[in-house]
């Protein structure tokens, strides 16, 4: 049986856990450590934690908080937010994270990917691309919390990053973020036709039923924020994750 990874994404504003809709209106959810402890109990496949304002506010990663989270994370833990150079990456790995997520630094310093992959291995370097549709329906890549358009087309950017040595792509749809409207399957198709690397997709998941179409469109792993921190359309806060049998029956055995 083939398994795909199902990954909760927690977004932080420094120390606070928040959730956005289309990358806007961050709503306070709670304390990230508590959330990670619950995700441990639920035996989640992996977690991604993104400090979504670190780059915007030109902050360093919050090493103390990250170390605290890592000491409670008994699953693979990827961190992103404010990471700009090799020293920071080395420091993060020493705190006990498995993977580092790069986004805002990529366009101007793609060489960082190559250097980091050489030292820490490609498998630990994730390139995150935030994607938004323009008024003509064309998909463009963005950085710095979705505020700044990247000058490369998505296809070119993906090729460049693969050449530079990233191990994985984290593709986040800004338009879908927090909307519960399903993954952007056209986007997944587009990226997966350009690369053989694993693609983690994020944005739009509302239930376990959204996973299968995303995988069939070319995703290697599915990630979600709202779905795992809220319950129902009223957005009551409840950290949750599908049961293993449910994933096996509804997803893995259908692949």
């Amino acid at each position: 049986m083939r398994r795909i990874r199902v990954i909760p994404v927690l977004t932080l504003q420094n120390e606070k856990l928040v959730k956005t809709i289309r990358f806007k209106n961050p709503t306070y959810i709670g304390d990230p450590i508590n959330a990670v402890k619950i995700f441990n109990e639920k035996e989640v496949d992996e977690i991604v934690i993104l400090d979504i304002t670190a780059s915007k506010e030109k902050r360093e990663p919050n090493y103390t908080k990250i170390e605290e989270i890592a000491s409670e994370a008994f699953m693979p833990f990827a961190y992103g937010g404010g990471v700009k150079n090799l020293n920071q990456i080395e420091k993060l790995f020493k705190l006990g994270i498995e993977k580092v997520v790069l986004n805002s630094v990529l366009e101007d310093n793609i060489a960082l990917v190559t250097e980091a992959a050489k030292i820490f291995g490609s498998q630990s370097i994730i390139a995150s691309i935030d994607v938004k549709k323009n008024i003509f329906g064309k998909l463009n890549a963005y950085k710095i919390s979705g505020s700044t358009k990247i000058n490369y087309s998505i296809d070119d950017f993906v090729n460049k990053l693969e050449e530079a040595g990233v191990g994985e792509f984290f593709i986040n749809s800004i338009d879908k973020d927090g909307t519960y409207s399903g993954y952007d399957l056209a986007l997944i198709n587009q990226v997966s036709s350009k690369t053989n690397l694993p693609i983690v997709v994020c944005g739009g998941a509302s239930s376990i039923n959204d996973f299968l179409p995303a995988i069939q469109a070319g995703a290697s792993a599915v990630a979600a924020g709202s779905m795992f921190v809220y319950t129902g359309a009223t957005r009551g806060i409840l950290i949750n994750y599908p049961k293993q049998e449910e994933l096996v029956n509804k997803v893995y055995q259908q692949l």
Binding site: R2, R3, R5, N196, L197, A221, L255
Partner: peptide
């Protein structure tokens, strides 16, 4: 084709 290298997943 859908099994990528590295093998990066949970497995039995």
């Amino acid at each position: 084709e859908n099994l990528k290298i590295p093998h990066m997943s949970w497995n039995e």
